[in-house]
Write a protein that binds this DNA or RNA. Structure first.
Lengths: 207, 207
DNA sequence: TATAATCATTTAACACTGTTAAGCAAATGT
DNA sequence: ACATTTGCTTAACAGTGTTAAATGATTATA
């Protein structure tokens, strides 16, 4: 009986350790990418970083793609946190939209590597899988209520809202992509493009 | 003397053949990518397609990246042809801009693979090198005169024109990227977003 | 024409990559 | 004390880009 309890506790400890190395794998992967870029990420490098050999990774992830997929999942959750935070700071939908797209912009540059794997900017991976990720719809869920409120439209899946959402998204994502690719214009111009576009769209949908 | 002429001719014939297999390499690469995607492109597959062995490719290109770089160069030239064609069909800068961005859009989907390697959408390669490519500035050269004319600004490198160019480009490239990644909205909505955004920007800069 | 030099091409090899199977040694259950 | 499971490693496979050496045909030279 007592032995049973002890083994239960040790099982839990082991489970905790396993969870920990799972996190270590993800952390190591992200760190390598931040230091050397996506192209340099290899399973053996991850294994080195967590002081194991490569095959052990398959105890925690089905394959390399699964690691990237998990990173994009965490990316979407982190992005959603930032969006919610920005939203909570304002009451009017116009201000909310402006703050949220700005938060989106900042997220992309504060987490360049995550954004790359989330939206496939200059990295080749798992589009189809990412699209099946439920978390990939969090931005939609975050933005459309504000758009709907601003336009006084209740059906958040209507084509009108969809169109406006994609207009916002396109210009912001486009500008981010162009910058990540290094086709840099100056930061001043970036900021102005972003502000002009967002306020322009907001004005165009404000009744 | 005669012999000299003959050898000259044979040298030219050989040079022509070499140029031909250079083109064959590029064609084979693009065909493989179109059929199996960028991830599936390998030197040995290219070699197979042109009925040689892999190392022969290094007689024509410094490395794999150089092949991709040459494809993006050809991509920019092709894009420029389309832009010029669209431009030539109209006289007013507003109509020109609209037609050109539409041509840009069509190019991206008619040559999805080229667009991907040109702008790094879900493929990892050679950003820095592409940015040094002179041909990468052809779109800028194609668009800014119309923008300048429309805004009645002569200095095509002024910040105002730069800002407007990036605004156009961001929304179009963003929408393309999102679609290539498979985050598809319907074609109807795409078309509407594109038209709305372009005509909106044009109206906003028309005096 | 015979020999030397050059050229085009291939084979072999290296250091990587992701991934799987086999083995081993320590911890665990009986 | 023995059997079994577990954690982890070593070895291996098929593939990648890339380089060096070897081969065989073509060309130039004597």
């Amino acid at each position: 009986m007592i032995i049973h309890c002890i083994t239960m506790a040790s099982k839990e400890r082991i489970a905790r350790l396993k969870e920990e190395t799972r996190i270590n794998i993800l952390d190591a992967a992200l760190q390598i990418v931040k230091q050397e870029g996506w192209q340099a990420l290899s399973l053996r490098k991850i294994a080195d970083a967590i002081e194991y050999t490569a095959p052990i990774i398959y105890e925690y992830f089905a394959n390399k793609e699964a690691i990237l997929l998990e990173l994009t999942r965490k990316g979407f959750l982190l992005l959603d946190r930032e969006l919610q935070k920005a939203k909570a700071e304002h009451r009017s939908p116009a201000k909310q939209l402006e703050a949220m797209w700005l938060a989106y912009w900042n997220f992309a540059f504060d987490n360049k590597e995550l954004y790359q794997v989330m939206f496939g900017v200059s990295t080749n991976c798992c589009c189809e899988l990412v699209n099946q990720l439920p978390e990939a719809e969090l931005p939609w869920d975050a933005f459309t209520p504000a758009i709907g409120e601003l336009m006084k439209i209740e059906d958040l899946d209507s084509d009108v809202i969809c169109t406006k959402y994609y207009t916002f998204w396109s210009v912001v994502h486009g500008l981010i992509s162009i910058n990540i690719l290094g086709r840099n214009s100056s930061d001043d111009i970036n900021r102005q493009v972003l502000r002009d576009a967002i306020t322009g769209i907001i004005r165009s949908i404000t009744p």
